[in-house]
């Protein structure tokens, strides 16, 4: 499973490097990822393999931040919105198990924080 997250993180590193390059190759201080509670990746595993993914890349000193997005569902019978983790998928109001997913499957790069002024000598 860790291997799976590593492959995904290598993709994240490639994408962030491309975005940084398109913005004049500033030093990237932080990467912010958003991961839904019902996404197919495990945040702890993402953190575990992050160091390996940035090894020998331009992001070697970049920090990783992860924002967790709660998995919310709306009951199809009574429209009650509930937190799927707490409710175990069962509507707390009418006990229905039918719901539409409102959030929680996200897995995206939200933003990066970069140094605005960097030395003109980029080879140092």
């Amino acid at each position: 499973m860790i291997m799976h997250e590593l492959s995904i993180m290598l993709e994240v590193v490639r994408r962030v490097e491309a975005v940084a390059k398109a913005n004049g190759s500033p030093k990237v201080k932080t990467i912010v990822l958003q991961i839904g509670e019902a996404a197919s990746v495990i945040p702890r595993f993402i953190e575990d393999c992050y160091d390996a993914a940035i090894h020998q890349t331009t992001l070697e000193e970049t920090k990783l931040e992860i924002e967790i997005i709660p998995a919310m569902g709306r009951c199809l019978d009574c429209r009650q919105v509930h937190h799927l983790r707490d409710s175990q998928g069962i509507c707390p109001t009418c006990r229905s198990k039918q719901f539409e997913m409102l959030s929680g499957r996200e897995f995206q790069i939200k933003q990066i924080a970069v140094e605005d002024h960097y030395e003109s000598d980029q080879n140092h």
Binding site: I8, V19, F107, Q108, Q111, I112, V114, E115, D116, Y118
Partner: peptide, 18 residues
């Protein structure tokens, strides 16, 4: 001193691949 600038990406990790 350098300042920090935020670059919004808001892009699914699988988007490029898709």
């Amino acid at each position: 001193m350098s300042q920090i600038k935020i670059i919004e990406i808001k892009e699914g990790i699988f988007e490029q691949n898709n």
